[in-house]
Amino acid sequence: NSLAEAKVLANRELDKYGVSDYYKNLINNAKTVEGVKALIDEILA
């Protein structure tokens, strides 16, 4: 998966839960796919 794909999928996942734009910005600023995954795990914990 590319970083861009990971960000799109992460933001879709956040949308399902009604997560605020603050967290979407964190996702969009992530530098690695692993970073995106770690943020998602933390946000949805």
Rank of each mutant, 00 (worst) to 15 (best):
K24L: 06
R12H: 12
L9I: 15
L14Q: 01
I40W: 06
S2H: 10
Y23T: 04
D41Y: 10
L9W: 08
V36G: 00
R12V: 14
I40H: 03
D15Y: 04
K24P: 02
D15A: 09
L44K: 10
D41R: 13
L26W: 05
S20K: 06
E13P: 00
E34L: 07
Y17F: 12
D41G: 10
E42H: 14
V19W: 09
L9D: 13
D21Y: 04
N28H: 08
V19Q: 08
E34S: 09
L14I: 08
N29K: 10
S2F: 09
K7P: 02
A45T: 11
V8M: 15
N1V: 12
K31L: 13
D15C: 04
L44H: 07
I43T: 02
L39H: 02
V33P: 04
D15K: 06
L26H: 03
Y23G: 03
L14K: 01
Y17P: 01
K24M: 05
Y23W: 13
K16R: 11
S20R: 04
K7G: 01
N29Q: 13
A6G: 02
S2Q: 11
S2R: 13
T32N: 05
A6Q: 05
L14G: 03
S20Q: 07
R12A: 15
K16S: 07
K24C: 03
E5R: 10
Y22H: 12
A4K: 10
E5T: 09
A30H: 02
I27S: 00
I43V: 08
L14R: 01
L44G: 03
L14W: 01
E13K: 07
I40F: 14
E34C: 08
D21F: 04
K7Q: 09
Y23H: 07
A4L: 07
N25I: 09
A10S: 01
A30F: 02
Y22I: 09
S20E: 09
D21L: 05
R12C: 04
E34G: 06
E13R: 04
G35N: 10
V8P: 00
I27A: 01
Y17W: 14
Y23V: 07
N25F: 09
Y17H: 13
A10E: 01
A45N: 13
D21M: 06
A10N: 02
I40P: 00
R12I: 15
V36L: 14
N11G: 08
S2K: 13
K31F: 10
V19E: 05
R12Y: 13
N29P: 00
V8F: 10
Y17E: 03
D15I: 06
Y23D: 03
N25Q: 11
S2T: 12
G35S: 12
N25S: 10
E42Y: 13
R12L: 15
N1C: 13
